[in-house]
Design a protein around this nucleic acid. Structure first.
Length: 569
RNA sequence: UGGGGAGUAGCCAAGUGGUAAGGCAGCAGGUUUUGAUCCUGCGUACCGAGGGUUCGAAUCCUUCCUCCCCAACCA
């Protein structure tokens, strides 16, 4: 018997799943798994965040756990509610529901208490050095730092000063609270890192209640521990912050503040994509300088950009899974993202016909009133998507790309004297080419074979080329936006000596076609709806559409093996 | 030069001492009323390099090389 049982390979685990499984096996957290996604509300989420979101929510879900959404809002001068709304929307769009929604700012009172506790334990002190002096005293990679003159203040004095910092007795920047660790550490993060700074700024949640704000390293671990996060997943650049993360939590020696066991920070390699940039700074620049139309410009790697481009959450999730999780710096091939959206849409997108660059065709042997209806399937494999009726008329449009006056080798589209099939309708032969004064082909006069209704000839002759078409009188005019990569170079950050990075922008990243013609059924489309325009690609209706003026974005083109054949010739 | 990481096919990535999974890309065929999809086949990966241990090493030891991160009152 044995032989015919399908042997399903157990999916290999990535290193974070291994850690979680080991912790569950040892009963470390009683089998509990609680992760968190901790964005700072100071920008829009991009596909790199999507990887982190899928990882955090994915790992938790896989082990019966949950994930909190926590806004890391400890720097009021950079943060804004505008961003928290978009972040919530994007996470939900990706298909995830968080357990708790928290804000680091909710924990300010708790953090303050813990800071006072550290001061009382002699683990933190108020430093009076200026910003420049602090930098200078910190030393560098070669030389150890020097102790701040106020490093050995008594806990009482520190407590008094810290309370007065909070009370607003000192101007911004006058003093900071520092952890007392090791000014000679090879790890710069441990050279008495700042815990609090004075900053009179309006906070999007706490308003003007505070004039001192905690720093990331102090706030993050405390927030994690408070929420009883089990695994705190972040990117590689925080690797050498981990000793500090642990230090802050371990100073709760009496266990008065945090539940044990404490959360563990785990770092993975962030996602990079070819032909685009991911840094907030660059993305912001693209928006502010009008190089793109906004954060949701379909060329942007932002979640909202991908959404407007027509990507599905399923495709984005599949992509993040295929790129994997490891600790090696990586750059994912943009082609893999395209593969993932094609894979998804191939299955589910209803087919339609649309002519991007119209070329008029007149069927000379069909009188004006002699048009007929044809029924065409909405999906070649999935009959559950049904069919629709199209009218075949004397005047049609086909795509300019589908006609060549001089047919190259292996060309099986239309050419003078050539016969092609019009999808779902009939066979047709080109008899005459009409040009304008400039020599441009403006119209084709063709004959259809009335015996080939539906698309096949009774004599069984083979016709290799099948073209999409629309009825001229029945079609809808539309605007179609074609997108390509934003940059011409795989790594846009690798700017050649003495050149501006903007020289690497792709001038053809957006092409707007204003004369496209759609089959009439598309009049019912609504923004966000996705289709395959047969033989050209996957498209989604853009929210810019208005009555009588539909606008479609090309999500991604179909694979084009003819382009390859021709390129090789 | 101090500290922390990482090096397996063009891009990702399994592998955890027993003789290199898988995906994308690429190439070659087949099917096809989308040159799409689908199906089939195709890669000597000198496992960063050199030494060593072992019957046996991508996996252990050792030396070296390369790349990334860290010296914000950013996260």
């Amino acid at each position: 018997m044995s032989a015919d049982l399908p042997i399903s390979e157990p999916k290999s685990l990535h290193f974070i799943e291994e850690i979680v499984e080991a912790d569950r096996a040892s009963g470390k957290h009683g089998g509990r798994v609680l992760t968190r996604f901790p964005p700072e509300p100071n920008g829009y989420l991009h596909i790199g965040h999507a990887k982190s979101i899928c990882l955090n929510f994915g790992v938790a879900k896989a082990y019966g756990g949950a994930t909190n959404l926590r806004f890391d809002d400890t720097n009021p001068v950079k943060e804004d509610v505008e961003y928290v709304d978009s972040i919530r929307e994007d996470v939900q769009w990706l298909g995830f529901q968080w357990k708790g929604e928290h804000y680091a700012s909710d924990y300010f009172p708790f953090m303050y208490d813990y800071a006072e506790y550290l001061i009382q334990q002699g683990k933190a002190y108020v430093c009076d050095l200026t910003e420049a002096e602090i930098r200078e005293y910190r030393g560098n990679f070669h030389t150890p730092g020097k102790a701040s003159p106020t490093r050995d203040r008594s806990p009482q004095e520190n407590l008094d000063l810290f309370r007065r910092m909070r009370a607003g007795e000192f101007p911004d920047g006058a003093r900071v609270l520092r952890a007392k660790i090791d000014m000679a550490s090879g790890n710069m993060n441990l050279r008495d890192p700042l815990m609090y700074r004075i900053r009179r700024a309006h906070h999007h949640r706490t308003g003007d209640a505070w004039c001192i704000y905690p720093m990331y390293d102090f706030a993050h671990g405390v927030s994690d521990a408070l929420e009883t996060i089990t695994h705190s997943i972040c990117t590689l650049e925080f690797e050498d912050h981990r000793p500090l993360y642990d230090w802050f939590l371990e100073q709760d020696v009496e266990g008065r503040f945090f539940q044990r066991p404490l959360p563990r920070q785990i770092e993975f390699a962030r996602l990079n994509l070819t032909y685009t940039v991911m840094s907030k700074r660059r993305l912001l620049q693209l928006v502010q300088e009008g190089i793109v139309r906004g954060w949701d410009d379909p060329r942007m790697p932002t979640i909202c950009g991908l959404r407007r481009r027509g990507y599905t959450p399923e495709a984005v999730r599949a992509f993040t899974e295929r790129v994997g999780v490891a600790k090696r710096d990586m750059v994912a091939d943009a082609g893999l993202l395209e593969y993932c959206i094609r894979e998804d849409l191939e299955r589910r997108a209803p087919r339609r016909m649309a002519v991007l660059r119209p070329l008029k065709v007149v069927i000379t042997n069909l009188a004006d009133g002699e048009g007929f209806d044809v029924e065409v399937p909405n999906h070649p494999e999935d009959t559950s998507l049904g069919t629709r009726r199209l009218q075949f008329t004397r005047e049609l449009f086909i795509d300019q790309d589908d006609f060549r006056e001089e047919a190259p080798k292996k060309w099986f589209r239309l050419a003078p004297g050539a016969e092609v099939r019009l999808r779902g309708a009939c066979l047709m032969t080109c008899r005459e080419v009409i040009k304008d004064a400039a020599g441009q082909v403006v119209e084709l006069r063709c004959e259809w074979d009335p015996a080939s209704r539906g698309g096949n000839a009774p004599d069984g002759r083979k016709v290799k080329g099948t073209l999409h078409w629309v009825s001229a009188p029945q079609s809808l005019k539309a605007e179609v936006r074609l997108y390509e990569a934003l940059f011409t170079q795989e790594d846009p950050m690798d700017v050649p000596e003495g050149q501006d990075w903007k020289a690497l922008l792709n001038p053809g990243s957006l092409e707007v076609l204003t004369e496209a013609r759609l089959e009439p059924s598309l009049a019912q489309a609504v923004p966000g709806e996705r289709f395959q325009f047969e033989r050209t690609g996957y498209f989604t209706m853009d929210p810019d559409s208005c009555a009588g003026r539909p606008v479609f974005n090309r999500t991604v083109g179909l694979k084009d093996s003819w382009a390859k054949i021709e390129a090789k010739q």
